[in-house]
């Protein structure tokens, strides 16, 4: 339960008076409760713009990631007897997991593909998360061979086997991977810092990161004085609270898939 305290504290700060928040006297109950942060938040157009950008990113990101992950994991789950060269591809995939091109080369590639400043710069460079692919691949492997054999005897093609048999059977893993993908896309702030050049096109987490990170490397007195004048702890807390809501809402819906797998009882041996 104690892991909830920071979250409760954040909620309390978002409902508190700004002066109280900057005096650090808010614990788990709001001090001088006020809705002013949320009122301000409602009228913050950039916040909602960034919010929608994040939603869009999760939507397209999810489609691209899930599609590619399934299509990569399924063939890799086959034995090398069924899929010649499986070992080679597997090693390639693992190599790509362990060694990445590095930030600058990736940036240059994205730039040369003219993806900078578009939402695809946030989706395509990480379109195949290999950790998830391996997770999914192992789930496919755990499916009893007899299921596939039975389907083949009934005349099903590989496509049909994948869609009608394998995917429903690995639904719990699929749900897990889906959740990982959503969370990863929703929470990523760094990609946009690198690939997006217009502040108005930042997704939500980048927008929030910009507000809450301590500004470093500034020595100009005039700028420092400007910073000293800003005191927005409560508003920032409200933004963080609202930005975590969508994830909190998604969890219960995913919950039911975690309960049990369907593999149980599908074959008798």
């Amino acid at each position: 339960m104690s892991c909830l305290i920071p979250l409760v504290n954040l909620v309390a700060i978002s409902f508190s008076d700004n002066a109280a928040a900057s005096a650090n006297i808010v614990s788990i109950f709001p001090v001088n409760p006020t809705f002013s942060s949320y009122e301000k938040l409602l009228s913050d157009t950039q916040f909602w713009r960034s919010f929608m950008i994040s939603v869009e990113r999760v939507f397209f990101g999810l489609i691209v990631n899930m599609g590619l992950m399934i299509l990569t994991a399924y063939p890799l789950s086959k034995s090398s007897r069924q899929f010649r060269g499986q070992k080679v591809y597997m090693n390639l995939v693992i190599f790509a997991m362990l060694f990445s091109g590095g930030l600058i080369p990736t940036f240059m590639v994205v730039k040369e593909l003219h993806l900078l400043d578009s939402i695809w710069a946030l989706i395509l460079p990480g379109a195949v998360p290999i950790g998830n692919v391996i997770l999914l691949m192992n789930a496919f492997r755990a499916v009893p061979k007899s299921l596939e054999e039975a389907a083949t005897i009934d005349g099903a093609t590989q496509w049909r086997i994948l869609v009608r048999i394998y995917l429903p059977v690995v639904m719990p893993t699929l749900a897990t991977v889906m959740l990982f993908t959503i969370v990863a896309h929703w929470n990523d702030y760094f990609g946009a810092l690198v690939y997006i050049n217009k502040a108005s096109n930042y997704p939500l987490q980048t927008y929030i990161q910009q507000l809450s990170v301590e500004v470093q490397n500034i020595t100009d007195p005039q700028k420092l004085m400007e910073l000293a004048k800003v005191s927005d702890k409560t508003l920032n807390a409200a933004k963080i609270v609202v930005s975590t809501l969508p994830l909190l809402i998604i969890y219960p819906f995913m919950q039911k898939y975690f309960v049990s797998g369907i593999v149980v009882g599908s074959v008798k041996e």
Binding site: L193, V194, N197, K198, A199, Q210, V213, V215, Q216, N217, I218, K223
Partner: peptide, 14 residues
Amino acid sequence: PKFEANDGTDYSQK
């Protein structure tokens, strides 16, 4: 603007 970023470290990166 060719790029925009927060003053400080983020701007230096850009």
